[in-house]
Amino acid sequence: MPELTKKPTEYYFKAVKLNQLDDSLQQEIKLKCGVDVETCMECGKCSGGCSNTHIFDITPRQMIKLIKMGREEPLLSMDSLWTCVSCQLCVDRCPSRIDIPRVMDYLREKACQQGIKPTREQVKLFNELMLGSIMKTGRVEESLLAVKFNLKTGNYFKDADLGRQMFFKGKLKAFGPRVKNLKKIRQIFNDTIQKEG
């Protein structure tokens, strides 16, 4: 068990006024993701199974509850957006089949669009560098990605020893084959960025 860094009471929410419920976020998620959180019966199996619930600031079950209450602001700035491993356990165990990973992705996307500072910037950076590699070459070049990530974060020697071992095992290749029709790949990026904002 990891050590608790906060007092147990700090893991729970402050009281909210229930006469301030607002279903606009719930409706938005139903419309944009096709996920209806109304069917949540609060059994908590999502959080019970969740791989990382022990480090989440807001658990999957609490997340669904906050959506129902229309409380967008804690959801867009929560740490869980950047520690969710997308392991699909929550949706798999949900008796109502609520696609929580899809909602997690939607909230993360929205937080980025609104320019909300992620709690773990290196996670966002890594994903952006990866997308950059796909846009440029159509594929991910793992070793270049790792080098770029270290340069950008200033941790020049992160995993240097591991990198050396992997190099001698022939696991690090700098230039793999690229996609030939790169025009198409760039067009897919442009079109989806336009459509999703």
Binding site: S86, R102, E109, N127, L131, I134, G138, I188, F189, I193
Partner: peptide, 19 residues
């Protein structure tokens, strides 16, 4: 091309399905 991996579905759903 790359399937989009974690990066695409984390940041742009439509991109991840399209790739």
């Amino acid at each position: 091309n790359c399937c989009g991996a974690t990066a695409a579905h984390s940041l742009n759903h439509l991109l991840s399905v399209s790739l």
